[in-house]
Amino acid sequence: MTTLLSIPMMLFVHDLRAACRYPGDMLASVMFFVMITTLVPLGLGPDQALLAQIAPAIIWIAVMLASLPQMDRLYTREARDGVLEQMLVSPAPMPLLMLAKALAAWVIIILPLILSAPVLAVMLGLSINGLLAIVAFLGLGGLCLVLIGSMAAGLTLGSRRSGVFIALIVLPLAMPVLIFGVMATTAVLTGGDAIGHLMLLAALTLILLVLAPPVSAAAIRFAEE
């Protein structure tokens, strides 16, 4: 028989295998992320000092915008295939399966953006120690975004609106993530004390880790009814 965690882990592995089937998708979202970030200097002008000052905000907003379109179709294909139906009929608790899928989505959607963030940080004139901070905080903030995104994807499953509609649900909930994330990153870059902001971001992550899986599970159970 299988232990409680083996089914979610199995699902996580298969999700990654499915994503690796089309590495092009990940590349596309990274390019989108890079392009959003290059828009800002084009808009504001090449003034390196100004760019360095607002670089954390640019990168965090770019991560949110680049990850948003992929949240929309997190479950639509599996719902159509019937995989969601099998997940609901699995002995493993649905919230755990949802957590596994959210973590898989973190690897597929957020990790590529984080790995390319340092390049952009340098382009925006950030110092080296800033890069580590950005990578660490984006990892945590990215997890929050993925958890909020998985809730929104479940809630909008089966609705007739798609595309920007999911942003109306994700963004209001993601604003605290942006606030804490940017402030933590800025604090590190300006040499200030980032621990306070980081603790708040970590607290928010824990809240979402507890809230998002059951809500996504309930949303999908309703959609499959």
Partner: peptide
């Protein structure tokens, strides 16, 4: 009605997934 075959997997892994999901 729906076959529950994950679209971007190959036949072997799709079957492994649904079997795994069933415990």
């Amino acid at each position: 009605h729906r076959n529950a075959n994950a679209e971007s997997l190959d036949a072997y892994h799709a079957l492994a997934m649904t079997a795994g999901l069933a415990g």
